[in-house]
Computed example of a mutant assay.
Amino acid sequence: MAARKVVVSEILYFLTNNINLLENEVYICNTADFYTNDDIVAASKILKSEFVNLKCEKIEKLLTNGTQKKDKLVDCIELLKNMVAANMLDKLPLFVSSNMSKIPNFEKCFQINFEILKNEVRDMLNKQHVNISAFIEKCSEEFAALKGKTNYVECNLK
């Protein structure tokens, strides 16, 4: 058995140890928030290099080349998922962390900020309230106009 090389990359260590969560949107967003853009770009470069070393399919068609940090992380995750799908995970280097403070606390990864959620729901309800009030006002005006027309018709019939 050939020895695998060891590469220090906290983000790849975190991603490969949580491979079953790579489809989870909350996991991706929180991971993107935790790591810097440079961390994500460096991880992508490592995976691209491994793609070339392992003679995988062309990388360009796998990447969206987004400009935001989350887009770059999604590109990195897509590379990793393609390697997993091709059963190449055991051919990749062992990703390790030299600083465990650069690894997100897994419990905090799925915490929901209820204050932000509460504000978003309140804003949504306020917008709906404004729309419903405007609709009711319009219906009231139309009803008043219709009532005026029926009164006019009623007076003409008498």
Rank of each mutant, 00 (worst) to 15 (best):
N53R: 14
L15E: 03
C155M: 05
N105D: 12
E137A: 07
A42E: 08
E78C: 14
K61H: 11
A43K: 04
L79E: 02
K58C: 10
N105A: 08
N99G: 08
S140M: 05
I46W: 00
N65A: 03
E10T: 00
D75R: 05
I59Q: 00
E57R: 06
N30M: 01
N53H: 09
V130H: 09
T67R: 07
G66N: 03
K69E: 11
N113K: 09
I59K: 03
E142L: 07
K108P: 10
D33K: 10
N151I: 03
K72P: 01
N17I: 00
I116L: 15
V8T: 11
A42L: 03
N131L: 12
E78D: 13
K69M: 02
E60R: 02
V121G: 04
A42M: 06
V6R: 13
E23I: 06
N65L: 11
L63D: 02
D39L: 04
F143S: 11
K118C: 12
I136C: 15
L73F: 00
L21F: 14
L73K: 01
N156R: 15
F34R: 03
L125N: 10
A85P: 07
E25G: 09
F110C: 02
C56I: 05
I28K: 08
I77D: 01
L157H: 13
V84D: 07
A145R: 10
R122T: 09
S140I: 13
V6G: 01
T67M: 09
I19N: 07
E50C: 10
K138F: 14
F51Y: 01
